[in-house]
Computed example of a mutant assay.
Amino acid sequence: MKHWLVKSEPEKYSWEKFNKEGRTFWDGVRNYQARNNLKEMKEGDLVLYYHSNEGKEVVGIAKVVKEAYQDPTTDDANWVVVDLSPVETLKKPVTLQTIKADAQLKDIGLVRQGRLSVMGVKAEEFDRILALGSGE
């Protein structure tokens, strides 16, 4: 299993709306590196859900429930989506400031490639963010 991070602006598609809907396809990706990451996602992979712009924090965990297929919002065959479902809300959101200040997360893609909307996360980075978000 691999781990991922996806970003959404809360005013566009918030964690709360995602939880109400229970499932969504992750569309609108128009960056080739992010698209390639979508193509690598496998059913069952876990995904950190990050609120970008407003909040700038990891707020929950989702999982991949359907692997890459043609983005239904465009006829351009270059773009794909995956289906995600929410798994768990973090007890305590993990802010970008907290992530940047944590020595164990110094190499995470969120810090190194801040503009990328879909990125891989190492298992130990994923686990560290979960620990920070557990509220302990």
Score class of each variant (00 low, 15 high):
Thr73Trp: 09
Ser52Cys: 12
Arg128Ser: 08
Asn36Trp: 08
Glu9Pro: 08
Met119Ser: 06
Lys100Arg: 15
Val121Lys: 01
Lys92Met: 11
Ser117Val: 05
Trp26Phe: 07
Gly120Arg: 11
Glu21Pro: 03
Ala62Gln: 00
Ser52Asn: 08
Ser52Leu: 01
Met119Ile: 00
Val59Ser: 04
Tyr32Val: 10
Pro10Arg: 07
Pro86Glu: 09
Ile99Arg: 01
Gln70Thr: 13
Ser117Pro: 00
Lys66Cys: 03
Ser14Arg: 00
Asn36Phe: 04
Asp45Phe: 02
Phe126Ser: 02
Trp15Gly: 00
Lys20Asp: 10
Thr89Tyr: 08
Pro72Ser: 15
Tyr49Asp: 02
Ser8Glu: 07
Asn19Ala: 09
Leu48Asn: 09
Leu132Gln: 02
Tyr13Cys: 02
Leu116Cys: 06
Glu67Lys: 15
Leu90Asn: 01
Asn37Leu: 05
Val65Arg: 04
Ala34Ser: 14
Lys122Asn: 03
Ala68Trp: 04
Phe18Ala: 06
Ala34His: 00
Lys100Tyr: 04
Ser8Phe: 01
Glu16Thr: 12
Tyr69Ser: 13
Arg112Ser: 10
Asp45Leu: 04
Glu88Gln: 15
Phe18Gly: 01
Gln97Asn: 14
Thr74Asn: 11
Tyr32His: 15
Val47Trp: 00
Glu54Ala: 15
Ala77Pro: 12
Lys20Thr: 07
Ser8Trp: 05
Gln33Asn: 10
Thr98Pro: 06
Asn37Cys: 11
His51Arg: 03
Arg35Gly: 08
Ala103Lys: 15
Lys7Pro: 11
Arg23Val: 11
Tyr32Trp: 11
Ala131Tyr: 04
Glu88Met: 12
Thr95Ser: 15
Phe18Met: 11
Leu46Cys: 05
Thr74Ala: 05
Val82Ala: 07
Trp79Val: 07
Leu105Gly: 09
Leu116Tyr: 08
Pro93Thr: 10
Asp107Trp: 10
Val111Lys: 13
Glu88Asp: 12
Glu40Pro: 02
Leu116Phe: 08
Asp45Ala: 08
Glu40Leu: 12
Thr24Ser: 04
Gly55Phe: 06
Leu116Arg: 12
Thr89Ile: 04
Asp107Ser: 14
Thr89Glu: 09
Leu84Pro: 01
Glu54Arg: 15
Gly114Lys: 06
Gly120Thr: 10
Pro86Leu: 08
Val58Phe: 12
Asp107Cys: 03
Met41Pro: 07
Leu5Met: 13
Thr98Gly: 03
Gly22Thr: 05
Tyr50Val: 08
Lys63Trp: 10
Ser117Phe: 07
Asp83Gln: 03
